[in-house]
Simulated assay, not measured.
Amino acid sequence: MVRIPASPELARGIVEEDAKTCHDAIARERDRRARTRRPWQQASRRIVWSRFHEIDVCLFVFIKLGEISMKLAHLLSSIALVATVAMAPAALAQEAPKLKVTPLQKEPLTGQPDKEVISVIVEWPPGSGTGLHTHPGDEYTTVLEGEVVGRKDGSEAKTYTAGQSYHNEPGVVHEANNKASGTAKTFNVFVVEKGKPVSDPVKR
């Protein structure tokens, strides 16, 4: 049922229960309201609706952009995490500085043709080392510059400085390192079995 605030004309139509009169009265009432409404009011209604529509659209776009930004940030964080995890093993597996070995001499041992004498100069960058290894013969080392830390398997480490020497017996597991901040240099002589590697790495 349509209810419109009554005017005298509309009231008479309803009381008389005259359908046509009531219908005409409603139409005239609507026309009267349309005529009495000022143009600026109609325009104001359109402007207000338009402004609310624009605000609603802006809010929708802002919310969607916020959701996209959050998803993008999450994606970038995931990519950064994956990249960090992927690069970590490579960083951990980075090799220590390598030794620089300069050969000096290689001659057969007099009276023992199955053995030979090999002499070299070894430069030890800071942080470098040999790792655990053995020799198929005797090793005689003299430190020329800096210092070298040597350790035989089962013994405590010992530091050798310039002018000091040490000896490693055949088959003894040992290692040497340069733990100082400067480069070290040694003179090494090996009396080993001919045709065999000067050193053999030991894996633990």
Rank of each mutant, 00 (worst) to 15 (best):
V61R: 11
E145L: 12
V149T: 15
P126Y: 05
P103I: 00
G150T: 06
A93I: 02
P103R: 07
T134Q: 04
P103A: 04
L72M: 15
V101T: 12
K106L: 08
D138R: 09
V143T: 05
A90Q: 09
A90K: 12
I63A: 14
A80L: 08
A91P: 00
K64T: 09
G154W: 02
A83N: 09
V143F: 03
L81T: 07
G66H: 10
I118Q: 02
F62T: 15
V82H: 15
V117G: 00
G146C: 10
W124T: 01
S119I: 03
T142L: 13
P89N: 12
A96F: 10
E123K: 05
I118G: 01
K115E: 01
L75Q: 15
T84F: 11
A91W: 06
A96D: 09
T110E: 13
G154I: 01
D114W: 09
V122H: 00
K106T: 08
K71F: 07
A93Y: 10
E147R: 14
A80H: 10
G146N: 09
D138N: 12
I68G: 07
V101N: 05
E95Y: 06
K64V: 13
S77D: 15
I63G: 11
G129H: 12
T142C: 08
K100D: 09
A73D: 13
T141N: 03
T130M: 02
I68L: 15
S119H: 05
L109W: 00
V120D: 00
L104A: 02
D114E: 15
I121L: 10
L132A: 09
H133L: 07
M70E: 15
L81E: 11
Q105E: 06
E139V: 01
P97G: 01
L76W: 08
K98M: 07
T142H: 12
V148D: 02
V85G: 05
E145P: 04
A90L: 11
S78M: 07
K106N: 14
K98W: 05
L65A: 14
H135L: 01
Y140E: 04
T102K: 12
H74E: 14
T130W: 00
K115W: 01
